Simulated assay, not measured.
Amino acid sequence: MSLEELTEEMQESYTEFDDELTVSLDRETRNELALLEAALEPDETDELVRRAIHMLFQSTVETGKLDFQLRSGYDVTYDEYLSGMTFEEMTGADQYPTMDDERRYQF
């Protein structure tokens, strides 16, 4: 897969999300959410879910897990996604023809 495919899939997913997202919760998650809501007293429970997504995203980026998953699935990193260019495109490495080792030193 490639940077273009990642961008397309991300745009498709983004458009599929409505302003509201229904999520089913298991017993443990409901318990943890109730405790967080009681302790942090947000205006809405939705705010806690938004914060949780931001925290998961940030920790996934900081630990390198996002880059690992992107490299495995799309052969790009998060930085390459943000710039819209692969490392090879940024450095110009994809502009040169590959060297033919058998003919490299022939005149």
Results as ranks from 00 to 15, higher is better:
3 L>V: 05
4 E>R: 08
5 E>G: 03
5 E>D: 09
6 L>W: 05
6 L>K: 06
6 L>G: 01
7 T>N: 04
7 T>L: 05
8 E>A: 11
9 E>T: 01
11 Q>L: 14
13 S>K: 09
14 Y>Q: 11
15 T>C: 02
16 E>L: 12
16 E>K: 14
16 E>G: 04
17 F>I: 06
19 D>Q: 11
19 D>S: 12
21 L>R: 09
22 T>L: 03
22 T>I: 05
23 V>P: 08
24 S>N: 07
24 S>T: 07
25 L>R: 04
26 D>A: 03
27 R>I: 06
28 E>G: 10
29 T>Y: 03
30 R>S: 14
31 N>V: 11
31 N>S: 13
32 E>A: 03
32 E>T: 01
33 L>V: 13
33 L>K: 10
34 A>D: 13
35 L>A: 08
35 L>K: 12
36 L>M: 14
36 L>T: 05
36 L>Y: 15
37 E>H: 15
37 E>L: 07
38 A>F: 13
38 A>E: 15
39 A>E: 10
40 L>S: 08
41 E>T: 01
41 E>M: 11
42 P>R: 09
42 P>E: 02
43 D>S: 08
43 D>Y: 01
46 D>Y: 01
51 R>H: 09
51 R>F: 11
52 A>L: 15
52 A>N: 07
54 H>N: 03
55 M>Y: 10
55 M>W: 06
56 L>F: 12
60 T>S: 12
60 T>N: 07
60 T>E: 12
60 T>L: 07
61 V>T: 01
61 V>S: 02
61 V>M: 02
63 T>K: 11
64 G>C: 05
64 G>S: 01
65 K>V: 10
67 D>G: 10
68 F>E: 11
68 F>K: 04
70 L>I: 02
70 L>G: 03
70 L>S: 01
70 L>H: 08
71 R>E: 02
71 R>L: 06
71 R>N: 08
72 S>T: 12
74 Y>E: 02
74 Y>C: 07
75 D>L: 05
76 V>A: 07
76 V>L: 04
77 T>P: 03
77 T>A: 08
77 T>H: 06
79 D>Q: 15
80 E>K: 13
80 E>C: 07
80 E>S: 09
80 E>Q: 15
81 Y>P: 00
82 L>G: 04
82 L>Q: 15
82 L>R: 15
83 S>W: 09
87 F>V: 00
87 F>A: 11
87 F>D: 10
89 E>P: 13
90 M>W: 12
91 T>V: 12
92 G>F: 11
93 A>G: 14
94 D>Y: 04
94 D>F: 04
95 Q>F: 04
95 Q>I: 00
96 Y>R: 00
101 D>E: 14
101 D>Y: 11
101 D>K: 14
102 E>L: 04
104 R>N: 03
104 R>K: 13
107 F>W: 00
